[in-house]
Amino acid sequence: MTVLSAPAIETRRAQTRRRELGGFLRSRRHRLAPADAGIVPGPRRRTPGLRREEVAAVAGVSLTWYTWLEQGRVGGVSRQVLDSLARALRLGPDEHRHLLELAGEPAAEPRAPAGASREVRDLLAMVEPNLAHVVTRCFDLVAWNAPVEALFRGMPEWPVPDDPNVVRMMFDVPGMRALYPDWEAEARWLTALLRNEAGRQAGNPRFQRLVDGLNATSPEFREYWSSHDLTPFTPSERRFRHPVLGEVTLRYMKLNVESDPDQSVIVHYAPPASAAAAALARLR
């Protein structure tokens, strides 16, 4: 079996991306009607969609260069040219993002976290009295149900601040240390989850601001982050300390939101007929 070196693997990946980029551009060019680009088609037009020279003219690049780009023979395309091609091909936001990813360019800074959809909010209510909340890949807190609010209500810092973030709250909100009996283990685990996202979020200014801010304000986060420990999300158990209920151990799991890949629903739940279930019923 032939073992490729790291540079050879990277070269192969770059070649694959260039081929995928060329195929994507061709597919969008073929799908765009000339009239959509302000072009009046002639009587003998046989090319489906736009011709290469038409895309090149609208995007402001040479025909030869654009031809090479579709053929996978060009690397290192600038962000300005990619944005121009996106406009020329009338790409939507998801298509524009895909174009940038294929070219190895970081996407534009994501919008502020979108609110949870009606269906997701219905789910949050349906799982009560279990705790459920919605987070993004940057761990921004998007929505939560009534039991979550009841759990946190004993904290003097509740309600949460503007633009809440789960990781930032763990380190910056003093009440979190009382809520979690194993605060250090929880904080290390959450930092490792965040570190696990670092590769996917490379070039995301929102993610980088979160990390930079925590490094600047929290010596503990700075220590945990510098260890480079990472962990994927796996279902397990967490302990909470509530001023009325005492200590409660809950299981937790994550559900991905298919309509918004940036969002996930985190559910903390108690097995039926357990002491924890009875405690959650009192919490509600």
Rank of each mutant, 00 (worst) to 15 (best):
F240S: 01
A57M: 10
D229H: 14
S27E: 13
Y66H: 08
G23S: 13
L131K: 00
V3A: 13
R121K: 06
R17G: 00
M170I: 06
T191A: 05
R73H: 15
L21E: 07
Q15L: 10
V61W: 04
A56Q: 09
R87L: 14
E157I: 06
R45V: 12
E109D: 09
D36E: 15
D83V: 02
R222E: 06
L91C: 05
A35L: 13
R79G: 10
T67H: 10
E54Y: 05
Y66W: 11
L141Y: 02
L69R: 05
R18L: 14
A216F: 12
G115R: 02
D36H: 13
F24K: 05
A146M: 02
L102K: 15
T67Y: 10
M155D: 04
V120S: 02
G60P: 08
D172T: 14
N215R: 15
S226E: 11
A198R: 15
Q15S: 11
L179V: 07
S117D: 11
G49L: 07
F240Q: 01
S259Q: 11
T136R: 02
A114L: 15
W183H: 06
V244A: 10
L280M: 06
V61D: 03
N196R: 08
A143I: 00
A88Q: 04
N204M: 12
V74G: 04
P235Q: 00
D140Y: 06
W183E: 02
V257Y: 12
D172V: 11
A270F: 06
R137I: 03
R52E: 12
R177N: 07
D262T: 03
A86V: 07
L124P: 02
L214M: 12
L190G: 06
Q80P: 06
R12F: 02
D229W: 09
A6Q: 14
W225T: 00
T231I: 07
R97D: 14
T2N: 12
V77I: 15
D94M: 09
E197F: 03
R44H: 10
R28L: 13
R200Q: 13
A56R: 10
D122N: 13
S27K: 13
R153C: 06
P41Q: 03
L230I: 02
H228D: 08
R97F: 06
H96V: 01
D229F: 11
G22L: 09
L151D: 00
L283H: 05
Q201V: 01
P181I: 04
P164M: 02
I39W: 11
